[in-house]
């Protein structure tokens, strides 16, 4: 197995230490940066697909995402230095009134794993903050997460605020336990993602469209 394949495997297994070490080795050996990134994306794609097919559990996805982050922290400065910028930017946050962040974190990590630049606004994010972030980063996609039925309506306020501010360039993706496709249609979101795995497919389709 090549070192690139080993890196893919280490991330897939969620072995953070090994993923870090392998990335260092690869970077020291002046491996093509796009290839290193590719090895990481392959691993996360695989994890996302398995999750979508319900073949793995949340913790398995979580540790894979952590291993990916470890590797990404090492790779990122090199990418920046080499002038390789992520093609797409995403802004993500859990809506106002909601403090749950595990779903949002998973999606953020999966998007990073798919090669997006991800701006994470955290939890309990107000519509004003989303508008501000959309102006500053001009993201291709904005992800809204809510785990409570009581905080779902905040999604609508955010979409309204974005539209009123004339920020129509960013596609809005929503997700979270109580969210459905019909709710997404009702509040005028551009897309709905049923889980962290499909969130990647959804944004890929959105940016390709």
């Amino acid at each position: 197995m090549s070192e690139l394949e080993q890196l893919t495997e280490a991330i897939r297994k969620g072995d953070r230490k090994q993923a870090g070490q392998l990335t260092e080795t690869l970077l020291d050996a002046e491996t093509d940066l796009e290839q290193v990134l590719g090895a990481m994306v392959t691993a996360m794609d695989d994890i996302g697909a398995k999750f979508q097919r319900n073949e793995i559990f949340v913790p398995e996805m979580l540790i894979a995402a952590r291993a990916m982050s470890e590797a990404m922290n090492l790779l990122e400065p090199r990418l920046i230095a080499a002038g390789i910028k992520p093609k797409y930017t995403a802004v993500i946050g859990t809506v106002q009134g909601d403090l749950h962040d595990i779903g949002k974190n998973l999606v953020a990590m999966m998007w990073k794993g798919a090669g997006f630049k991800v701006v994470d606004l955290g939890t309990n994010v107000t519509p004003a903050k989303f508008v501000e972030a959309a102006r500053e980063h001009t993201p291709h996609v904005i992800g809204l997460s809510a785990l409570l039925t009581t905080t779902m309506p905040a999604m609508k306020s955010i979409i309204t605020a974005l539209r009123e501010a004339g920020l129509n360039g960013s596609k809005v993706v929503i997700g979270g336990a109580p969210i459905t496709q019909s709710y997404a249609d009702e509040i005028g979101a551009d897309a709905y993602a049923s889980d962290a795995g499909s969130a990647v497919d959804v944004v890929r389709q959105l940016v390709a469209a």
């Binding site: 319900n54 949340v58 913790p59």
Partner: peptide, 18 residues
């Protein structure tokens, strides 16, 4: 249907990890 079973357990795991 292991997949459906994992969906249920994943709901609960999200609570645990969250």
């Amino acid at each position: 249907d292991r997949g459906a079973a994992r969906i249920v357990l994943n709901h609960i795991l999200v609570i645990v990890f969250g």
